[in-house]
Write a protein that binds this DNA or RNA. Structure first.
Length: 838
RNA sequence: GCCGGUGUGGCGGAAUGGUAGACGCGACGGACUCAAAAUCCGUUUCUCGCAAGGGAGUGGGGGUUCGAGUCCCUUCACCGGCACCA
């Protein structure tokens, strides 16, 4: 009879729950280990693709616990967000109800998977007991000058009717809706993440347990570039024009100055210049998304103004308004040096501007002139450039900046691509921003005694826009300062606000303040964080910033929240479409004979499991048929954890067969009672090698290899079990059960119990490999002739070189390969290889 | 365009510069069975050969080395990030 996973899993889950086996208690006398998986948005039901990272986190948590660490492994819900509001609009269910209903379902699913969470620490970010603390944080940020309000052009998602941060715009589209983003001018709250640009960049170097890839992505996102501000006088006008450049060395090659269509100078000039106004309007009409498509077309409008070269009062350059100049970067203005910049080169060619070469390759002379391509290499030498002549590019930059500073015409500066984080969202289902707008007093923070500013429940979704704005009474309040009539801020925080500090709240989930100092000092940083690569710059950058902001407001003493980061691969599955192109669920497609794909259905390539393409396998489908352990082992087998995993029915069946083989192995073994000391036997070496290898694999996140080692061990015990001394067989079986425990904890408890133990396996220490048994007396040594394998020989361990080469030369295959030629050289790598060079 | 990653059997993938293909999936053959399922045993990189035994082989080309999937150069393909960023 096959193993009843249903029964065993329910039993052990209730034992763990009753004994509070996985409850974490702050205890500075013990070494701690904080394992965290990125908490989910409660969007509905989990499918098998969702639970891979929770399974990995659970293996780490159980493994570290067995090694004696005080483990914190919590779970919660990133519960604010748009889908809840969309559900309200579509189905008439309140976002709160929808969210909590989903939480109930998903909590049940995670519990069914047997993940060892300390459920007493569960949090939901939509609860006032959570979000009240971030309202306080915001007020502290405001005091510290880390939060501010300004009018700005924002990314507007026309589908979601809300603002998006730069990090949330992917290829000109909303990261969630996929709708082309528009530009709008709105008054918004911002957090000064740019204050920390240098620190966030520099500290990336210290994150040695983060994937290189994620660090590079953040580095690119922060986008530090060194250069200079240069101030240009405008002929006939009192004001100056500031431009930013990374190539101050090429200033003698300048041939034009260009400003953004949104530059104040352009706006001013357009007032009295209708064609320019038309040109600017045309530039703005082309949205961000279309601009990406039309990259080639560079357009400019000659304002007629002349800019005076900062190093030569007699040198005057035309001032253009140009569509390729971004208002948001640098000064919103630049000088063009066509000879040494691709984009300036194209612009100059189009408007017939001079192309003056000022940098030449080292092997060219001063008659050098750029041809059909600009010379952008920075390894060249300056010429045609007065005091810079003969200098390399780097020295020329320094020299030019020094000269500009002396003349008061510019200064060296560092420019970042990173912008401040806009956190205002015109949505209902988020944390209210705790400020009040008073006509008399301006912006007034909500007094701390009035926190939390609660989200009202009685809202309607019958018209577009923000329900908080439509609410009849909620926003009408008296000004805390003057007592006069005033209005609440109706915007709510970007939901990345909640996820920027939840890892700290888990340390003191029920504290009356955000978190207790004693708890965060002990538990933080998170030792191992696990989640998807899609948060490489969003959540992970915000959290790094937020932790620093909290540090500077006295909340904690920490800069980096996540000491170790692992980004897991996705779970993929084939996709199915019918003749009309509709996506089908696997169970809808597999209606042919023997579960084959039904006629007329197209099998598409394997893609990340997603609801929209319906290529998902429900979690219950697997747990009901095979149990949680089978799903857990499958999710960790075969593919390395950082790579994508292909979900197949036959793969799951293979795992299920293995589960039953393990059960039979234990059931059929004739064993002495627990505790029998095994006599020396060669099989013990294999057992202890397996323990050592699996331990190493778990340490290095190589779960697929750990699984292979465990299977090797159980294969050996199955094949040779009958001939092993019973005490040795017991040692081997117990080792296998204990090694597999972090991956299949229910089955392991069941087998442990079946082996006659009254203890809980979850409370047992991790098995130790006996170092003496890891060393073999005899080793297999490969014999090569000219690097080609010709034989293998068994030699005593650490046999000397002469003995090794003699044994090698005695081999029949070796003699044949040498074929009477003389041996010129013998390379002996002890215990590994003998290579004869002939 | 810039930056990064990955290329190994039919498939997923193993391999501190030292016996390439561990472990699995699939396939094929066999045992058990009236039959099937389940289970068990065996084969499974390609190629020549009845066999013994050869030869080739980690995207392509070159190099370093006694020895390269692994290191270096170059090239191709795919994946990811960034991008009128001055």
């Amino acid at each position: 009879m096959p193993y009843s996973a249903q029964e065993a899993e329910a039993k052990w889950q209730s034992v763990w729950r009753e004994r509070a086996t996985f409850a974490a208690v702050t205890d500075p006398s013990r070494p701690k280990y904080y394992v965290l998986e990125m908490f989910p948005y409660p969007s509905g039901r989990l499918h098998v693709g969702h639970v891979r990272n929770y399974t990995m986190g659970d293996v780490v948590a159980r493994y570290k616990r067995a090694q004696g660490f005080n483990v914190l492994h919590p779970m919660g819900w990133d519960a604010f967000g748009l889908p809840a509001e969309n559900a309200a609009i579509a189905g008439g269910i309140h976002p709160k109800e929808w969210t909590y209903a989903n939480i109930r379902v998903m909590r049940g699913q995670l519990q069914r998977m047997g993940i060892a969470y300390d459920w007493a620490r569960e949090i939901a970010t939509c609860h006032p007991d959570y979000y009240r603390h971030e309202q306080k944080m915001f007020l502290d940020f405001l005091k510290a000058g880390l939060a501010y309000r300004r009018e700005s052009w924002v990314n507007w998602d026309p589908e979601e009717h809300t603002v998006l941060a730069n990090e949330q715009v992917i290829d000109g589209r909303g990261w969630r809706s996929g709708a082309p983003v528009e530009k709008r001018l709105l008054s918004q709250w911002f957090l000064r993440i740019t204050n920390y640009a240098d620190e966030l960049l520099d500290a990336l170097k210290t994150l040695d347990r983060w994937p290189e890839r994620v660090r590079i992505m953040q580095e690119n996102w922060i986008g530090r570039s060194e250069g200079a501000r240069v101030w240009w006088k405008l002929a006939g006008r009192p004001d100056k024009l500031e431009v930013f450049t990374t190539r101050p060395d090429t200033l003698f090659g300048a041939s034009f100055v260009a400003v953004s269509p949104n530059h104040p100078l352009a706006t001013t000039l357009a007032e009295s210049n209708p064609p320019l106004a038309d040109f600017i309007a045309e530039c703005n009409r082309v949205g961000t998304s279309e601009a990406a498509i039309e990259t080639a077309e560079k357009k400019g409008f000659d304002t007629g103004l002349k800019a005076v070269h900062p190093l030569d009062p007699n040198w005057k350059l035309p001032v253009y308004v140009a569509n390729f100049v971004l208002m948001e970067y640098g000064a919103g203005a630049l000088f063009g040096c066509p000879a040494h910049d691709q984009r300036d080169f194209e612009f100059a060619a189009k408007y017939r501007l001079p192309i003056v070469s000022v940098v030449r390759p080292r092997d060219a002379d001063d008659s050098y002139h750029v041809g059909s391509e600009p010379y952008v290499d920075q390894g060249g030498v300056l010429f045609n450039s007065q005091f810079l002549n003969g200098l390399g590019v780097a020295e020329a930059k320094t020299a030019m900046i020094a000269r500009l500073e002396k003349l008061g015409a510019g200064e060296g500066t560092v420019q970042f691509r990173l912008r401040d984080w806009g956190v205002s969202r015109q949505r209902y289902w988020g944390c209210p921003i705790p400020v009040i707008h008073c006509a008399k007093c301006g912006i007034v923070p909500v007094p701390e005694k009035d926190l939390p500013v609660r989200l009202p429940d009685d809202v309607t979704f019958d018209r577009p826009g923000n329900p908080l704005d439509h609410h009849p009474t909620w926003k009408h309040v008296n000004c805390p300062t003057c007592g006069g009539k005033a209005q609440r801020e109706t915007d709510t925080f970007d939901t990345f606000f909640e996820s920027s500090w939840y890892f700290a709240r888990f340390c003191s989930p029920r504290a009356p303040i955000a978190f207790e100092r004693r708890d965060v000092d002990y538990w933080l940083p998170v030792d191992q964080y696990i989640g998807g690569i899609e948060h490489a710059v969003l959540h992970l950058l915000y959290s790094r910033f937020f932790t620093r902001a909290l540090r500077d407001c006295g909340y904690l003493d920490l800069a980096e929240p996540f000491a170790g980061l692992f980004t897991q691969g996705m779970v993929c599955h084939e996709t199915y479409q019918d003749e009309a192109g509709n996506w089908l669920f696997p169970e809808e497609a597999m209606t042919g004979p023997d579960g084959a794909v039904a006629p007329g259905i197209t099998v598409g390539r394997s893609e990340k499991m997603s609801k929209s393409k319906k290529n998902v396998v429900g979690l219950e489908t697997i747990t009901e048929q095979y149990g949680a352990d089978t799903a857990r082992l499958y999710l960790l087998s075969d593919s390395p954890p950082e790579r994508d995993l292909e979900w197949t029915d036959s793969g799951v069946e293979g795992i299920w067969r293995y589960v039953n083989r393990l059960v039979r192995l234990v059931e059929n073994a004739k064993l002495p009672p627990p505790g029998a000391a095994p006599a020396d036997h060669p099989a013990r070496r294999a057992i202890h090698r397996a323990i050592a290898a699996v331990t190493d694999d778990f340490d290095k996140f190589r779960f697929n290899r750990a699984v292979a080692r465990i299977r090797e061990l159980t294969n050996l015990l199955e094949d040779d079990g009958a001939s092993l001394p019973p005490a040795v067989l017991r040692e081997g079986i117990e080792a296998a059960v204990r090694l597999v425990n972090p991956i299949m904890p229910h089955l392991a408890e069941e087998l442990w119990h079946g082996l006659g133990h009254a203890t809980l396996l979850a409370d047992q220490p991790w098995p130790m490999a006996d170092a003496a048994l890891l060393i073999d007396e005899f080793v297999k040594v490969a014999v090569q002739v000219n690097g080609k394998l010709r034989a293998t020989i068994d030699l005593p361990r650490d046999a000397d070189q002469d003995a090794a080469s003699k044994a090698a030369l005695a081999q029949e295959g070796v003699v044949r390969a040498i074929d009477g030629k003389s041996v010129r050289k013998v390379i002996v790598v002890p215990n590994r290889i003998v290579n004869l060079v002939v």
